[in-house]
Amino acid sequence: MRTDELKQYHTFFTSPLLAMGQTIPGESDLRINETATRARAGLLNMLSAVTMVILLVRPEWDPVIYVGPYVIFDMVMAAVFGLTPLSPTGVLGTAMTMKSKPVWKPIKPKRFAWSLGAAMGITCLAFRLLELPDIWLFSVLGICFMLTWLEAVLGFCVGCWMHAKMFGCEVCKID
């Protein structure tokens, strides 16, 4: 295959299996598929919206006790191992975009953003376990909703933007 054909090649699993990203010909570092990342963000956006609705309509169900650990696990697995095979939402996002043309982006900004996402999940769970007023919980959930919406709909990753500003990422092209 030619180099331009390989750049369009999309696989479900990385090689080696638990690599953070894909090796793309002509690129010095590993890359991650932005299309799958945006699909994952859309799924997480829906999860945050449903969580807020349940908290408003049926607060006795307390979804944060279940959603918090899931989001923390998903974010940590994505930050450490990439979208597949250990991040459940990453697997779904990758499966949803298998027929789409991949858009390859650097992994370091995404890893940074997902680490911040894990910290926000920990914050939500801590607020619930410490029984802080719901306004604090809704504040963090609202921020999660906005950040995942920006990524999924507009393709703007705030964590990636922060990474570029803080660490001067030369290969980061923030659109």
Rank of each mutant, 00 (worst) to 15 (best):
P69N: 14
V57N: 05
A36E: 05
D4S: 06
L86P: 01
E131I: 08
V140K: 00
P16H: 04
M20G: 11
E131Y: 08
A39S: 08
S28T: 11
T84E: 00
G168H: 14
S28G: 07
A49W: 07
M146C: 13
F81Y: 10
L56K: 12
V103K: 14
V91S: 07
I135T: 09
P85A: 02
F138M: 09
L141F: 08
A36I: 11
V91E: 04
Y66F: 10
M98H: 09
L43W: 06
A49I: 14
L154H: 14
P63N: 05
G82P: 03
A49G: 00
M46T: 11
S115Y: 06
A41K: 01
L43T: 04
E151L: 11
T89K: 04
F81M: 03
L17N: 00
F127R: 05
W149N: 08
F12H: 09
I65L: 12
P59K: 09
R111H: 08
M98C: 12
M77Q: 01
A39R: 06
F127Y: 11
E170I: 15
G93Q: 04
I32G: 01
S48R: 02
S100W: 04
W161L: 10
Y70V: 15
T94V: 01
T14H: 11
C157Q: 05
K7G: 02
M75S: 13
L83S: 10
H10W: 08
M96Q: 08
K173V: 14
E27T: 08
V80F: 03
L83W: 10
L83M: 15
P109Q: 13
L137W: 00
W114K: 09
M52K: 04
E60A: 12
V80N: 01
H10E: 03
K99C: 10
P63I: 01
